[in-house]
Design a binder for these strands. Structure first.
Lengths: 184, 184
DNA sequence: TCCATCATGTAAACAGTTACATGATTGC
DNA sequence: GCAATCATGTAACTGTTTACATGATGGA
């Protein structure tokens, strides 16, 4: 059992499985266009990951006529498919923790701002940015609705998360007397 | 203007400000005991960060009689306080994105499991783990309620996030016919 | 013809973790 | 006396990003 196989490696494996046969370049695009900022899909990350997955026999290069651009189509092997299943099923407890949120981090230091006015300015900005992200997310998620059920469901999860943040931010704004500033 | 100052550096600065005068060790404990898994508070991270903050003049060592254990009490300077305020106020758009969630990632690859039964097993496990984390979180957040208002509010944000995930997971379970398995 | 995109890959930098190393203090 | 905790710090490792490097294809 290969120890120390990372989230990125598992995620790359599952992504190849989903689009196979596909190139490393295609996997990069998927990460780069993802709505969450977990991985950039940088070449310096993906190509070494592909190399490791090949070495472990979890993926293989599809035999085919050489592409003039040097493209190599990849495919997940049966052990690779098994590795994906195990990764999903053997959910480790840490994975269920609340995820770090840069806005929440800042809120926890809110009393280091100079005044309630400053706090409200920050909170309103956070609210507006979250609203914008939510609108954009709704559009992109709706676009995959008909294409891919599981990806749509995951997108719904992200929407729930942003909606929860918005609800919470409004509670926090109320706490710091947001109404007074808005109506005054 | 110092470029490339990280979230961890800002977070360390704000934490020192909150507990000052305090040692690097105390800062480590705060990170280590945090309910979100963003940073471990490892020595290899904190001590170099402290060194950089000192070099930039954002913190200083409190002059005092030498502690036999070599303890050095730290304090945030006025420029350091300003840096914290700017960090909070100048909220960059990326910070409002939906945060990566390992459970959501797995859900997006759910059709790579072998059957609906397997999917339900995973989803129920995710639900249960999230419930456990939520209970634990509620306890720890309630404990800081009277002690520190802003930290309590941030904790409420984490609770909202886990509640949203739970609600979403139940929707997903319904999608994959969870009721059929439970009642059948 | 030129630019955007497709397609590969490496080298250096960077940020953080783990493991190691040292030593004092406190409580049992 | 011994273990847990307090307290500092470094070295090696890991997993990313950024920047660099090369070249083909397709469309304006």
């Amino acid at each position: 059992m290969a120890i120390g196989i990372t989230e990125l490696e598992h995620c790359t494996l599952a992504t190849i499985r989903l689009h196979q046969p596909c190139s490393a370049y295609a996997v990069r695009q998927v990460f780069a266009r993802s709505s969450t900022p977990e991985w950039s899909g940088s070449t310096g990350a993906i190509y070494p990951v592909i190399k490791r997955l090949l070495r472990r026999g979890l993926i293989e290069v599809e035999p085919q006529p050489d592409d003039p651009r040097g493209r190599r189509d990849l495919r997940v092997t049966p052990p690779g498919e098994q590795a994906v299943r195990v990764w999903i099923i053997d959910l480790e407890p840490w994975a269920a923790k609340a995820t770090p949120d840069p806005i929440r981090t800042r809120v926890s230091f809110l009393d280091q701002l100079a005044s309630d006015d400053e706090r409200i300015v920050f909170l309103k900005e956070a609210e507006e940015l979250t609203e914008t992200m939510l609108e954009e997310l709704r559009r992109t998620v709706e676009a995959v609705r008909a294409v891919h059920a599981a990806e749509y469901l995951a997108g719904r999860g992200a929407i729930h998360q942003l909606e929860a943040r918005l609800k919470w931010l409004r509670e926090v704004i109320a706490c710091y007397g947001g109404a007074a500033v808005v109506n005054g």
